[in-house]
């Protein structure tokens, strides 16, 4: 989990990486066999500005790289710029 967080932080120069381990919710599900985890992550990075959602998610997946699929089975991503993050938090 630390490695996952470190990779995302380093690759994207992220301001915020909030990583959550959802593996317990998926216990018994075929994809969770062999210890591959289900995670969700909020990533806040200024470099997301001007990028489409697909490109933002790709950038996160690229950072995680070969940890998918054997260590990480699923990674739910929410990617924000610092401005969008402020607004998302204000409206939450």
């Amino acid at each position: 989990m630390n490695e996952l967080r470190n990779r995302i932080t380093a690759a994207l120069a992220a301001d915020v990486v909030e990583l959550q381990d959802d593996s317990a919710k998926h216990r018994g599900h075929a994809g969770a066999r062999g210890g591959a985890g289900h995670y969700s992550v909020v990533v806040v990075a200024s470099r997301f500005a001007g990028m489409t959602r697909v490109d933002r998610h790709r950038a996160v997946y690229d950072a995680v790289g070969d940890m998918i699929p054997h260590q990480v089975h699923a990674l739910a991503v929410r990617a924000y710029t610092p401005d969008e993050w402020q607004r998302a938090r204000a409206s939450a």
């Binding site: 959602r53 697909v54 998610h57 739910a76 991503v77 929410r78």
Partner: peptide, 11 residues
């Protein structure tokens, strides 16, 4: 290609 589950739900 539009995206996966997260993107579609957000949109």
């Amino acid at each position: 290609f539009i995206g996966g589950c997260d993107i579609v739900r957000e949109m």
